[in-house]
Simulated scan of single mutants.
Amino acid sequence: MIRWGILGAAKFARVHMGPAIHAAEGARLVALATRDAEKSNGFRAFCPDLHVHGSYDALLADPGIDAVYIPLPNHLHLEWSLKAIAAGKHVLTEKPMVMQAAEFDQLIAARDASGLQVAEAYMIVHHPQWQKVRDLIDAGEIGRIDHVDTAFSYDNRADPGNIRNRPETGGGGIRDIGVYTYGSVRFAARAEPVALEARLRLENGVDTWAQVTGEMAGPQGRFTYSAITSMRLFPRQEVVFQGERGLIRVTAPFNAGLFGEAQVTLHRNPNHMELFRFPALNHYVLQVEAFGRAIRDGGGYPCPLEFSKGTQQMIDQIFAVGRAI
């Protein structure tokens, strides 16, 4: 049984990852670090025996904890991930794990030196809908990919104090949700960007809307690519892989089960459509279980730091070429 602690009483941890850790096979949530003890009440609703530490350092010093989950504001991820590794804990940190791709080298070196499991919490690759998409592409079901469209949007303009709307906490839509519109294509099509352009709308120093266009290349060659992310639009999620002989559409790609039922649709001609449904799976639970297997068995992890570094490199490139409009 892997005993988990959480650094910080973030809402996301309380609503999603805390319950997922506690529900995952082979895992148990045992501790939370927060300076405000009242914030632990929401966690005790599903984990009544939770031990609450008054500081992050105290939790890391607890010998009864094997692994930590870090949902702190973005700008704190690298610092506390390295501290957790130094304390001998396995580490699962929310995305983006770093602010610049080169910073992943510190984490990779610390992981390799310690022998611990260290990863970015990129849950979608653990969901079978994305494994299905990858398998369909690998099998040539839509032929050579010609174009990929991705979109992810929500509206949080009414919450200006949200860390996503604040530059000092590493906010912005690209860091929050661009990791999905970019990383999902890298994962499923095994592709990397070749040439990108980006148009950005900024508010208070953070991107609230971004349009990225360009080309990516994978085993099947180059294809055109388009991505929209926004924190100021009506909620939307969709990814479409368009090939020379067919099309794959993912309609709840990033918040499966919350935005809608996880479904993958394969179109191979106007009169042939296959629907693959995944109605009752929680990718946060699957992520914790995969992380636990990697700890116990010492095998590969579906989303190693090297993959996450590649997505951050794409993000860095987008910021470098981005043009404010």
Score class of each variant (00 low, 15 high):
residue 262 A to N: 09
residue 7 L to Q: 01
residue 72 L to F: 09
residue 51 H to C: 11
residue 232 R to I: 14
residue 303 C to W: 11
residue 220 Q to M: 14
residue 142 I to P: 05
residue 196 L to D: 01
residue 157 R to E: 10
residue 304 P to R: 06
residue 90 H to F: 06
residue 273 M to K: 15
residue 150 T to G: 10
residue 108 I to R: 10
residue 161 G to A: 14
residue 198 A to Q: 06
residue 180 Y to N: 15
residue 160 P to A: 09
residue 173 G to H: 06
residue 284 Y to P: 01
residue 176 D to Y: 15
residue 108 I to Y: 04
residue 232 R to T: 15
residue 254 F to N: 11
residue 184 S to L: 12
residue 208 T to K: 12
residue 154 Y to D: 15
residue 256 A to T: 01
residue 197 E to K: 15
residue 191 A to L: 07
residue 219 P to K: 11
residue 39 K to I: 04
residue 77 H to V: 04
residue 13 A to M: 02
residue 92 L to A: 12
residue 63 P to K: 05
residue 58 A to D: 15
residue 176 D to C: 15
residue 317 Q to Y: 03
residue 97 M to F: 12
residue 165 N to H: 06
residue 188 A to C: 15
residue 153 S to G: 05
residue 107 L to A: 04
residue 13 A to G: 09
residue 152 F to A: 11
residue 69 Y to T: 03
residue 314 M to I: 02
residue 71 P to V: 01
residue 297 D to Y: 04
residue 243 G to Q: 11
residue 322 G to N: 00
residue 246 G to Y: 04
residue 203 E to A: 14
residue 207 D to T: 08
residue 198 A to R: 08
residue 260 G to S: 00
residue 130 W to H: 15
residue 135 D to V: 06
residue 287 Q to I: 00
residue 112 D to N: 13
residue 150 T to L: 12
residue 321 V to Q: 05
residue 13 A to T: 00
residue 90 H to N: 13
residue 189 A to M: 03
residue 277 R to Y: 08
residue 202 L to P: 01
residue 291 F to H: 06
residue 102 A to G: 11
residue 314 M to W: 15
residue 191 A to Y: 02
residue 14 R to V: 10
